[in-house]
Design a protein around this nucleic acid. Structure first.
Lengths: 129, 129
DNA sequence: CTATCTGCAAACGTTTTGCATCTGT
DNA sequence: ACAGATGCAAAACGTTTGCAGATAG
Protein backbone atom coordinates (compact mmCIF):
# COMPACT_ATOMS: atom_id res chain seq x y z
CA UNK A 1 0.00 0.00 0.00
CA UNK A 2 2.57 2.49 1.13
CA UNK A 3 4.84 1.71 -1.72
CA UNK A 4 2.10 2.54 -4.19
CA UNK A 5 1.64 6.07 -2.94
CA UNK A 6 4.31 7.38 -5.26
CA UNK A 7 2.20 6.31 -8.22
CA UNK A 8 -0.02 9.32 -7.68
CA UNK A 9 -3.15 7.46 -8.59
CA UNK A 10 -6.16 6.93 -6.39
CA UNK A 11 -5.69 3.73 -4.47
CA UNK A 12 -9.09 2.12 -4.49
CA UNK A 13 -9.61 -1.38 -3.09
CA UNK A 14 -10.03 -2.67 -6.63
CA UNK A 15 -6.76 -1.15 -7.71
CA UNK A 16 -4.96 -2.57 -4.72
CA UNK A 17 -6.31 -5.99 -5.62
CA UNK A 18 -5.03 -5.59 -9.17
CA UNK A 19 -1.66 -4.41 -7.89
CA UNK A 20 -1.50 -7.35 -5.52
CA UNK A 21 -2.25 -9.74 -8.33
CA UNK A 22 0.47 -8.24 -10.49
CA UNK A 23 3.15 -7.94 -7.83
CA UNK A 24 5.91 -10.42 -8.57
CA UNK A 25 3.71 -12.10 -11.14
CA UNK A 26 5.87 -13.91 -13.69
CA UNK A 27 2.95 -15.26 -15.74
CA UNK A 28 2.58 -12.22 -18.00
CA UNK A 29 -1.17 -12.21 -17.45
CA UNK A 30 -3.75 -10.87 -19.87
CA UNK A 31 -6.45 -8.39 -18.88
CA UNK A 32 -8.94 -11.24 -18.74
CA UNK A 33 -6.77 -13.29 -16.41
CA UNK A 34 -6.38 -10.36 -14.05
CA UNK A 35 -10.12 -9.74 -14.28
CA UNK A 36 -11.03 -13.33 -13.42
CA UNK A 37 -8.64 -13.38 -10.50
CA UNK A 38 -9.68 -10.07 -8.95
CA UNK A 39 -13.38 -10.74 -9.57
CA UNK A 40 -13.26 -13.50 -6.96
CA UNK A 41 -12.76 -10.91 -4.26
CA UNK A 42 -14.64 -8.07 -5.97
CA UNK A 43 -17.55 -9.65 -7.85
CA UNK A 44 -18.58 -6.31 -9.34
CA UNK A 45 -15.17 -5.81 -10.94
CA UNK A 46 -15.48 -4.63 -14.50
CA UNK A 47 -13.18 -4.49 -17.48
CA UNK A 48 -13.46 -0.72 -17.41
CA UNK A 49 -11.64 -0.76 -14.10
CA UNK A 50 -9.10 -3.34 -15.24
CA UNK A 51 -8.14 -1.44 -18.36
CA UNK A 52 -8.34 1.91 -16.64
CA UNK A 53 -5.92 0.73 -13.96
CA UNK A 54 -3.58 -1.01 -16.37
CA UNK A 55 -3.48 2.13 -18.48
CA UNK A 56 -2.67 4.25 -15.43
CA UNK A 57 0.05 1.86 -14.34
CA UNK A 58 1.54 1.76 -17.80
CA UNK A 59 1.55 5.53 -17.95
CA UNK A 60 3.31 5.79 -14.62
CA UNK A 61 5.92 3.34 -15.83
CA UNK A 62 4.93 0.59 -13.46
CA UNK A 63 4.08 -2.14 -15.91
CA UNK A 64 4.89 -3.03 -19.50
CA UNK A 65 2.38 -3.99 -22.13
CA UNK A 66 3.60 -6.96 -24.14
CA UNK A 67 2.59 -7.58 -27.71
CA UNK A 68 4.35 -10.90 -27.97
CA UNK A 69 1.02 -12.70 -28.01
CA UNK A 70 -0.95 -11.58 -31.09
CA UNK A 71 -4.26 -12.71 -29.62
CA UNK A 72 -4.26 -10.35 -26.69
CA UNK A 73 -2.20 -7.89 -24.74
CA UNK A 74 -0.19 -9.24 -21.85
CA UNK A 75 1.11 -7.28 -18.91
CA UNK A 76 4.45 -7.50 -17.19
CA UNK A 77 5.05 -5.88 -13.80
CA UNK A 78 8.77 -6.54 -14.07
CA UNK A 79 10.26 -3.26 -15.25
CA UNK A 80 13.86 -4.41 -15.11
CA UNK A 81 15.35 -4.69 -18.59
CA UNK A 82 14.75 -8.14 -19.95
CA UNK A 83 13.47 -10.01 -22.98
CA UNK A 84 11.03 -12.85 -23.47
CA UNK A 85 10.77 -16.29 -24.92
CA UNK A 86 7.39 -17.67 -25.88
CA UNK A 87 6.38 -21.27 -26.40
CA UNK A 88 4.85 -21.68 -29.84
CA UNK A 89 2.70 -24.51 -28.54
CA UNK A 90 1.25 -23.40 -25.22
CA UNK A 91 1.93 -19.63 -25.53
CA UNK A 92 3.50 -19.42 -22.11
CA UNK A 93 6.05 -16.67 -21.75
CA UNK A 94 9.30 -16.75 -19.81
CA UNK A 95 11.76 -14.04 -18.98
CA UNK A 96 15.21 -13.80 -20.47
CA UNK A 97 17.58 -11.85 -18.29
CA UNK A 98 20.42 -11.30 -20.65
CA UNK A 99 21.59 -8.07 -22.12
CA UNK A 100 22.27 -7.99 -25.84
CA UNK A 101 24.29 -5.10 -27.03
CA UNK A 102 22.44 -4.36 -30.24
CA UNK A 103 22.72 -1.10 -32.03
CA UNK A 104 21.23 0.01 -35.27
CA UNK A 105 23.74 1.81 -37.51
CA UNK A 106 22.63 5.20 -38.73
CA UNK A 107 22.28 4.00 -42.33
CA UNK A 108 20.16 1.03 -41.34
CA UNK A 109 17.76 3.07 -39.25
CA UNK A 110 16.35 4.78 -42.33
CA UNK A 111 16.00 8.21 -40.80
CA UNK A 112 14.39 6.87 -37.65
CA UNK A 113 15.10 8.22 -34.24
CA UNK A 114 15.34 4.86 -32.48
CA UNK A 115 13.93 4.92 -28.97
CA UNK A 116 13.92 1.30 -28.02
CA UNK A 117 14.09 -2.32 -29.00
CA UNK A 118 12.50 -5.56 -28.15
CA UNK A 119 13.81 -9.06 -28.59
CA UNK A 120 11.52 -12.04 -28.66
CA UNK A 121 12.67 -15.58 -28.77
CA UNK A 122 10.39 -18.41 -29.60
CA UNK A 123 10.61 -22.12 -29.31
CA UNK A 124 9.24 -25.08 -27.44
CA UNK A 125 9.16 -25.06 -23.67
CA UNK A 126 10.29 -27.83 -21.40
CA UNK A 127 6.77 -29.12 -20.88
CA UNK A 128 5.72 -29.06 -24.53
CA UNK A 129 8.75 -30.68 -26.11
CA UNK B 1 0.89 -17.15 -62.00
CA UNK B 2 3.30 -19.94 -62.88
CA UNK B 3 5.47 -19.19 -59.93
CA UNK B 4 2.55 -19.72 -57.59
CA UNK B 5 1.86 -23.25 -58.73
CA UNK B 6 4.34 -24.66 -56.25
CA UNK B 7 2.19 -23.34 -53.44
CA UNK B 8 -0.22 -26.18 -54.00
CA UNK B 9 -3.23 -24.07 -53.32
CA UNK B 10 -6.08 -23.44 -55.72
CA UNK B 11 -5.26 -20.37 -57.72
CA UNK B 12 -8.54 -18.52 -57.95
CA UNK B 13 -8.73 -15.04 -59.47
CA UNK B 14 -9.26 -13.60 -56.01
CA UNK B 15 -6.16 -15.30 -54.70
CA UNK B 16 -4.10 -14.11 -57.62
CA UNK B 17 -5.27 -10.57 -56.91
CA UNK B 18 -4.21 -10.94 -53.28
CA UNK B 19 -0.87 -12.36 -54.34
CA UNK B 20 -0.37 -9.54 -56.78
CA UNK B 21 -1.11 -6.99 -54.09
CA UNK B 22 1.37 -8.63 -51.75
CA UNK B 23 4.18 -9.17 -54.24
CA UNK B 24 7.04 -6.87 -53.44
CA UNK B 25 4.84 -4.94 -51.04
CA UNK B 26 6.97 -3.20 -48.43
CA UNK B 27 4.05 -1.59 -46.59
CA UNK B 28 3.36 -4.54 -44.25
CA UNK B 29 -0.37 -4.29 -45.01
CA UNK B 30 -3.15 -5.37 -42.69
CA UNK B 31 -5.97 -7.69 -43.75
CA UNK B 32 -8.23 -4.69 -44.11
CA UNK B 33 -5.82 -2.87 -46.39
CA UNK B 34 -5.51 -5.90 -48.64
CA UNK B 35 -9.29 -6.27 -48.59
CA UNK B 36 -9.91 -2.67 -49.60
CA UNK B 37 -7.37 -2.87 -52.41
CA UNK B 38 -8.54 -6.16 -53.89
CA UNK B 39 -12.21 -5.25 -53.52
CA UNK B 40 -11.78 -2.60 -56.21
CA UNK B 41 -11.31 -5.31 -58.80
CA UNK B 42 -13.45 -7.95 -57.09
CA UNK B 43 -16.34 -6.14 -55.44
CA UNK B 44 -17.67 -9.34 -53.91
CA UNK B 45 -14.42 -9.98 -52.10
CA UNK B 46 -14.99 -10.98 -48.50
CA UNK B 47 -12.87 -11.16 -45.38
CA UNK B 48 -13.42 -14.89 -45.35
CA UNK B 49 -11.42 -15.11 -48.55
CA UNK B 50 -8.77 -12.67 -47.37
CA UNK B 51 -8.11 -14.51 -44.13
CA UNK B 52 -8.44 -17.90 -45.74
CA UNK B 53 -5.81 -16.99 -48.33
CA UNK B 54 -3.47 -15.33 -45.87
CA UNK B 55 -3.69 -18.39 -43.65
CA UNK B 56 -2.88 -20.66 -46.59
CA UNK B 57 0.07 -18.50 -47.61
CA UNK B 58 1.37 -18.39 -44.08
CA UNK B 59 1.11 -22.15 -43.80
CA UNK B 60 3.04 -22.64 -47.02
CA UNK B 61 5.74 -20.33 -45.75
CA UNK B 62 5.08 -17.62 -48.27
CA UNK B 63 4.28 -14.75 -45.96
CA UNK B 64 4.97 -13.79 -42.36
CA UNK B 65 2.38 -12.59 -39.90
CA UNK B 66 3.71 -9.65 -37.92
CA UNK B 67 2.60 -8.90 -34.40
CA UNK B 68 4.56 -5.69 -34.11
CA UNK B 69 1.35 -3.65 -34.35
CA UNK B 70 -0.83 -4.54 -31.36
CA UNK B 71 -3.98 -3.19 -33.01
CA UNK B 72 -4.01 -5.64 -35.88
CA UNK B 73 -2.04 -8.29 -37.64
CA UNK B 74 0.19 -7.19 -40.48
CA UNK B 75 1.51 -9.32 -43.28
CA UNK B 76 4.95 -9.38 -44.83
CA UNK B 77 5.61 -11.14 -48.15
CA UNK B 78 9.35 -10.73 -47.68
CA UNK B 79 10.57 -14.04 -46.32
CA UNK B 80 14.25 -13.12 -46.31
CA UNK B 81 15.60 -12.82 -42.77
CA UNK B 82 15.13 -9.29 -41.55
CA UNK B 83 13.80 -7.30 -38.63
CA UNK B 84 11.47 -4.32 -38.32
CA UNK B 85 11.29 -0.85 -36.95
CA UNK B 86 7.93 0.72 -36.21
CA UNK B 87 7.08 4.36 -35.79
CA UNK B 88 5.36 4.90 -32.46
CA UNK B 89 3.44 7.83 -33.94
CA UNK B 90 2.13 6.73 -37.34
CA UNK B 91 2.62 2.96 -36.93
CA UNK B 92 4.39 2.61 -40.25
CA UNK B 93 6.81 -0.28 -40.39
CA UNK B 94 10.17 -0.41 -42.15
CA UNK B 95 12.53 -3.27 -42.79
CA UNK B 96 15.87 -3.66 -41.10
CA UNK B 97 18.25 -5.77 -43.12
CA UNK B 98 20.92 -6.40 -40.62
CA UNK B 99 21.86 -9.63 -39.03
CA UNK B 100 22.40 -9.61 -35.30
CA UNK B 101 24.32 -12.55 -34.01
CA UNK B 102 22.34 -13.21 -30.91
CA UNK B 103 22.39 -16.48 -29.13
CA UNK B 104 20.71 -17.61 -26.00
CA UNK B 105 23.00 -19.55 -23.65
CA UNK B 106 21.67 -22.91 -22.54
CA UNK B 107 21.19 -21.72 -18.93
CA UNK B 108 19.27 -18.65 -20.01
CA UNK B 109 16.89 -20.55 -22.26
CA UNK B 110 15.20 -22.22 -19.29
CA UNK B 111 14.81 -25.60 -20.90
CA UNK B 112 13.46 -24.16 -24.12
CA UNK B 113 14.35 -25.49 -27.51
CA UNK B 114 14.84 -22.14 -29.19
CA UNK B 115 13.66 -22.10 -32.78
CA UNK B 116 13.85 -18.44 -33.68
CA UNK B 117 14.06 -14.86 -32.66
CA UNK B 118 12.57 -11.58 -33.59
CA UNK B 119 13.91 -8.12 -33.05
CA UNK B 120 11.68 -5.09 -33.13
CA UNK B 121 12.95 -1.58 -32.98
CA UNK B 122 10.74 1.34 -32.31
CA UNK B 123 11.13 5.06 -32.64
CA UNK B 124 10.03 8.05 -34.63
CA UNK B 125 10.19 7.95 -38.41
CA UNK B 126 11.59 10.66 -40.64
CA UNK B 127 8.15 12.08 -41.41
CA UNK B 128 6.89 12.14 -37.83
CA UNK B 129 9.89 13.62 -36.10
C1' DC C 1 -15.74 19.00 -1.80
C1' DT C 2 -14.52 17.45 -6.16
C1' DA C 3 -11.51 15.22 -9.33
C1' DT C 4 -11.26 10.82 -10.29
C1' DC C 5 -12.75 6.00 -10.21
C1' DT C 6 -16.25 2.21 -10.62
C1' DG C 7 -19.57 -0.66 -12.89
C1' DC C 8 -22.72 -1.57 -16.30
C1' DA C 9 -23.91 -2.04 -20.90
C1' DA C 10 -23.39 -0.80 -25.33
C1' DA C 11 -20.15 -0.07 -29.12
C1' DC C 12 -15.99 -0.96 -31.59
C1' DG C 13 -12.50 -3.03 -34.78
C1' DT C 14 -10.48 -7.22 -35.99
C1' DT C 15 -10.81 -11.94 -36.85
C1' DT C 16 -13.47 -16.29 -37.15
C1' DT C 17 -17.22 -19.19 -38.41
C1' DG C 18 -21.38 -21.70 -40.62
C1' DC C 19 -23.21 -22.70 -44.57
C1' DA C 20 -25.01 -22.69 -49.26
C1' DT C 21 -23.08 -22.10 -53.66
C1' DC C 22 -19.47 -22.18 -56.91
C1' DT C 23 -14.99 -23.50 -59.29
C1' DG C 24 -10.08 -25.03 -60.16
C1' DT C 25 -7.90 -28.99 -61.12
C1' DA D 1 -16.43 -35.15 -59.95
C1' DC D 2 -15.23 -33.30 -55.89
C1' DA D 3 -12.03 -31.21 -52.62
C1' DG D 4 -11.67 -27.04 -51.51
C1' DA D 5 -12.68 -21.94 -52.32
C1' DT D 6 -16.03 -18.00 -52.28
C1' DG D 7 -19.34 -14.74 -50.25
C1' DC D 8 -22.53 -13.37 -47.05
C1' DA D 9 -24.01 -12.61 -42.59
C1' DA D 10 -23.67 -13.57 -37.96
C1' DA D 11 -20.84 -14.38 -34.10
C1' DA D 12 -16.80 -14.18 -31.37
C1' DC D 13 -13.21 -11.87 -29.12
C1' DG D 14 -10.46 -8.38 -26.88
C1' DT D 15 -10.76 -3.70 -25.97
C1' DT D 16 -12.89 0.95 -25.52
C1' DT D 17 -16.39 4.17 -24.29
C1' DG D 18 -20.44 6.95 -22.22
C1' DC D 19 -22.44 7.91 -18.35
C1' DA D 20 -24.66 7.86 -13.67
C1' DG D 21 -23.45 7.07 -9.17
C1' DA D 22 -19.74 6.28 -5.71
C1' DT D 23 -15.38 7.39 -3.28
C1' DA D 24 -10.37 8.62 -2.20
C1' DG D 25 -7.83 12.36 -0.91
Amino acid sequence: MERYRRLNIKLTPQRLAILKHLEGNKAHPSADEIYKSVKKKYPTMSFATIYNTLEALKEKGNIRELKIDPAKKRYDPDMSPHHHIICTKCSSIFDVYKDFDIRLPEETAGGFKVSGKNIEFFGTCRKCK
